[in-house]
């Protein structure tokens, strides 16, 4: 009996080493998602699929868009937080559908055409320094923020930061969403203009400025980065707006001309499947979308805390409107007018 078992085990070991010895399948993932943020997810994938050699390109949203359109061969999987751009790519037919158990199980509101999937759930937050709280009541809502900016103009002058919509795709999208929900957003823009708001390109830059003390208040930061940052920097407070909170989702799709579509499908199935989502919920502040996943960072838990005030940016054709060149131009015209 034990001899028999020994033979079987030896066979399995030989088979496994033969598989290991084989050449690993390369898989290129081009992502506008910081590597250190995504590291737990990527490590888990590497452990689960040792035969795939993951090449992770951490790039900006513009670069991700550009590479998806022009590089040859294109990346296998494209991940980006610039939701309208991702949507435009898919609408142009640059994605291929994913038919799998994980895809079928994925919530309908977080996917489009079975081609592009929003796999994170990142609330957009307000971040302030503790100093701010010493001088005034920190803002809980957009209206509070407007009142604060108007009332404490002298104190806050030059100490407020937000995304520059001209240079940041995410920033412009967030502001467009804000403008969509309330016409009073433009009053807020005017108030930010009155305190000489500093426009940054990324959440990371804003967080750096806050940590250095250059800024006291940051508006519309990506919660995922902010939460991770604030854990190491206790002088910063992250607050999810109480009236409404936008939720941004990283969108991922398999490129139509992916050189390794099978590996790409395995990556997507991992990310969308319970394993990947559990990593997102437990080890990253990217938040899991799946309602059945349990962990500190889940959409379900956020909903339980914030309630119905979470407004995920919808993944559907309406996103394309925010990529409309004329609409963007008109937005920028209005932005500049209000800011002055």
């Amino acid at each position: 009996m034990s001899r028999y078992l020994q033979v079987v085990l030896t066979g399995i070991w030989l088979l496994a080493s033969a598989v290991m010895a084989q050449e690993r399948i390369p898989l290129t993932v081009t992502a506008a998602l910081d590597r250190d943020m995504a590291a737990p997810l990527l490590d888990a994938f590497a452990r689960a699929h040792p035969d795939i050699e993951l090449i992770y390109e951490d790039v900006s949203t513009q670069a991700a868009d550009q590479r998806a359109r022009t590089t040859d061969p294109p990346p296998d999987v494209v991940i980006s937080s610039a939701m309208p751009w991702q949507m435009a790519l898919v609408n142009e037919g640059l994605a291929q559908p994913l038919h799998s158990q994980a895809a079928r199980n994925w919530p309908a509101w977080a996917q489009w055409r079975n081609e592009v999937f929003g796999f994170t759930f990142e609330p957009v937050v307000t971040v302030f320094r503790l100093e701010l709280a010493r001088h005034m009541l920190p803002p809980g809502t957009h209206a509070d923020l407007h009142t604060l900016l108007s009332g404490q103009r002298a104190l806050l002058k030059g100490r407020v930061t937000t995304y520059g919509p001209a240079s940041s795709g995410i920033g412009q999208m967030l502001f467009q969403q804000d403008a969509r929900y309330s016409p009073r957003f433009w009053d807020l823009v005017a108030a930010m203009g009155a305190v000489d708001v500093s426009l940054e390109n990324s959440t990371r830059a804003m967080l750096a400025g806050l940590t250095e003390g250059r800024y006291w208040l940051g508006y519309n930061l990506l919660g995922s980065y902010a939460i991770a940052w604030a854990r190491r920097h206790p002088e910063l407070i992250v607050r999810i707006p109480q009236d409404y909170a936008l939720v941004m989702m990283r969108m991922a799709f398999i490129h139509r001309d992916a050189p390794n579509p099978a590996a790409a499908r395995r990556f997507m199935n991992f990310v969308l499947g319970p394993e990947g989502q559990r990593v997102l919920a437990g080890d990253t502040p990217l938040f899991s979308v799946l309602p059945e996943v349990v962990g500190p960072y889940t959409a379900q838990r956020l909903r339980d805390q914030i309630g119905e005030r979470l407004y995920p940016i919808p993944i559907n054709a309406s996103l394309l409107a925010f990529d409309d060149p004329l609409r963007r131009r008109l937005f920028m015209v209005r932005w500049r007018r209000e800011l002055e």
Binding site: S318, L319, L326, R327
Partner: peptide, 14 residues
């Protein structure tokens, strides 16, 4: 002519 592309129009279209 200017038009602020209505998001709803694109959703109807889809």
């Amino acid at each position: 002519p200017i038009v602020e592309m209505p998001a709803a129009a694109l959703q109807i279209l889809a």
